[in-house]
């Protein structure tokens, strides 16, 4: 117990916990919709775009968030468009955009600073890299996501379950899809600072999949995804603090364990 209090006395740990809990919550809520709409890979694609943007920002000595957030939002809206009305299939479009962004990021890094710790933290995440503006942004983001889900819950369900029906009965589904994409973009940028570009998509996908093993109604899936996500984050952070393992990877492994246990339990019943 004293160990935990000790851990909480570090300023960077407090900040990491606040940002992490809020981002995990947002990722889980948005993740349920993304997974059910078959947009899981968008999170992965966006994280690579985010890496590219952060690498360029660091090469040009610009504020990382100020560059990455708008870039990733544009990419998110673009990916959503591409995956619905285009000759290039959605998954191929995501693969093209994400590997191109990664390539541009890698080149700009190698031409300027080289592979330093800053760049490595973008790849694999570091809770030490979280700044005050990350904390502020994560509070704003989670307020927006929670407000969206609490206020527009009936519409979100309808748009996720059956987009054509919702459109036919007069709901502007484009607005909700765009909102979803924008919020996902911000979640990915914030999350990748902590989790790393290579691991952030698991924060979006795992809680939703675990919750779907556990529950059969949409409301229950949303609530349990949020709870699972926050608990896995806390477990991962604790593990990384006490066992000195990388934070992002520990959180992913915590999620993996929960998913595996729930899958096995689901099979037996």
């Amino acid at each position: 117990m004293t160990e935990i209090i000790n851990m909480l006395s570090y300023h960077f740990m407090q900040r990491a916990l606040i940002v992490g809990v809020l981002v995990s919550l947002c990722a889980a809520l948005l993740g349920v919709s993304l997974v059910l709409k078959r947009y899981s890979m968008i999170g992965d694609g966006l994280s690579h775009v985010g890496f590219g943007a952060l690498a360029i920002a660091s090469a040009l000595n610009l504020a990382p968030l100020a560059v990455a957030v708008p870039t990733v939002i544009v990419a998110a809206v673009l990916l959503l468009r591409l995956s619905r009305n285009s000759r290039v299939k959605g998954d191929a479009a995501i693969a093209i955009i994400s590997s191109s962004a990664l390539a541009i990021g890698v080149i700009s890094v190698s031409l300027t600073t080289g592979m330093n710790t800053e760049v490595s933290s973008y790849m694999f995440g570091s809770i030490l890299s979280l700044s005050r503006s990350d904390a502020v942004l994560s509070v704003l983001l989670s307020a927006a996501v929670l407000l969206l889900f609490v206020l527009f819950y009936p519409r979100i369900f309808a748009v996720t379950f059956d987009e054509n029906f919702s459109r036919a009965t007069g709901t502007r589904t484009g607005v909700y899809n765009t909102l979803l994409a924008v919020l996902t973009a911000v979640t990915v940028v914030l999350g990748m600072r902590m989790m790393g570009a290579l691991l952030i998509s698991s924060l979006i996908i795992f809680p939703a999949l675990s919750a779907m093993r556990l529950c059969r109604s949409f409301k229950a899936v949303i609530l349990s995804a949020a709870i699972i996500s926050v608990l896995c984050f806390l477990a991962g952070v604790m593990a990384s603090y006490f066992l000195e393992t990388p934070t992002g990877a520990s959180i992913v492994v915590a999620n993996l364990l929960v998913f595996a246990i729930l899958s096995l339990a689901g099979k037996r019943t």
Partner: peptide
């Protein structure tokens, strides 16, 4: 609508689906 594979594995209770018809 014609049923899609998407809807078939969607986690939703019967109540939730029927109620979503009141969307308009």
């Amino acid at each position: 609508p014609q049923q899609t594979q998407l809807q078939r594995d969607f986690p939703a209770s019967v109540n939730e689906v029927v109620l979503s018809g009141c969307l308009n």
